[in-house]
């Protein structure tokens, strides 16, 4: 019980990072981006490449940080991967979504995102192969916090949780204290009015993609650290991330954070009552149940 709760929180942190980017894009651009989770894959794989590169140049970087399986090289790589992913997200928007936005409707965007997801996933598979890979082959043993009730926690998970919370905190300050944050909110409220007031819409949109990409890359690396990396992690994660976004309410960054935790916890707790064969359906049960009570998610507002 407590174990499931703890696991849920730790898994939820990764989902939250993914959901923040998704909710921002869905809010500003008003479309359900099914390719968002592929940004996690791009992040995870570019970190893998940088990691190999850095560890090769400076072997000392390959040492582990404290009890974690995170190395200095991987930490550096994560920042590089955030850059690469943010940039790719922006470029994908520039070459695909922006053009479709100009002539098509919202559903065209949704479909284009399906197509983009398919392309990214398979190109990654072609380059890196279809097998799972790991940042570190070592298994870090979980630490027993208490034996009755049983509670085991892996150091990596704590690290990921703290890092995720730190990233969220930084984002919070960016959104609430900077001009960009205000601009973002203005655009979300009313794009035309914001443009009239001198906000450059294209710049805000580009920044939203970059932020979404950065957070996704971090989520991808954290996921890879705790689990494994393969070309289909985007496919595996897209649904829980969507669930987190919707539970939180589209457009609400804090909702997305909370949504991630709720979905993580619920998915872990569900197995206490359901046979494990039904686990893929759990995130949707949560969505359905929540939407019946609150048709716009926890913090979402009716949007036109």
């Amino acid at each position: 019980m407590i174990q499931s709760l703890a696991d849920g929180i730790l898994v939820g942190a990764i989902l939250s990072l993914g959901a923040i980017g998704l909710t921002m894009v869905m809010h500003i651009l008003r479309f359900a981006n099914f390719s968002h989770a592929e940004l996690l894959s791009i992040g995870a794989y570019s970190a893998l490449v940088f990691d190999a590169l850095f560890s090769g140049i400076l072997p000392i970087l390959a040492n582990k940080i404290g009890p974690f399986s995170m190395t200095w090289a991987l930490t550096l790589s994560m920042f590089c991967a955030m850059g690469v992913t943010g940039l790719s997200a922006m470029l994908i928007d520039r070459f695909v979504f922006k053009r479709i936005r100009e002539k098509g409707d919202e559903l065209s965007m949704v479909f284009a995102s399906f197509g983009v997801a398919m392309i990214i996933r398979n190109v990654l598979g072609l380059i890196f192969g279809l097998k799972s890979q790991l940042y570190s082959n070592d298994i870090v043993f979980a630490v027993m916090i208490s034996s009755d009730p049983m509670l085991l926690i892996k150091p990596d998970q704590v690290f990921v949780l703290l890092a995720a919370l730190l990233i969220m905190l930084v984002l919070h300050f960016v959104l609430s204290r900077t001009t960009f944050g205000y601009a973002l909110r203005a655009v979300a409220e009313n794009p035309s009015l914001a443009e009239v007031s001198g906000i450059r819409l294209s710049r805000v949109i580009a920044l939203v993609w970059i932020i979404g990409g950065c957070l996704a890359a971090a989520a991808g690396v954290f996921y890879g650290l705790n689990n494994h990396i393969n070309p289909v992690i985007g496919r595996d994660l897209v649904l829980p991330i969507f669930a987190a976004t919707i539970v939180g309410g589209i457009g609400s960054v804090y909702g997305a954070v909370l949504g991630g935790f709720i979905v993580g916890i619920a998915a872990n707790m569900a197995l206490l009552v359901l046979p494990s064969g039904y686990s893929p359906a759990v995130p949707f049960m949560i969505i359905l149940a929540l939407l019946l009570v609150r048709p716009h998610g926890l913090f979402g507002e009716p949007q036109t």
């Binding site: 174990q3 499931s4 696991d7 898994v11 996921y223 705790n226 689990n227 289909v232 992690i233 496919r235 595996d236 994660l237 829980p240 998915a267 872990n268 569900a270 197995l271 046979p275 494990s276 064969g277 686990s279 893929p280």
Partner: peptide, 17 residues
Amino acid sequence: SVALNDAQPSYRAEVTQ
């Protein structure tokens, strides 16, 4: 006897079970 579905992001819950 625990079933593991394809394409799940994490098998932590199943393993705990």
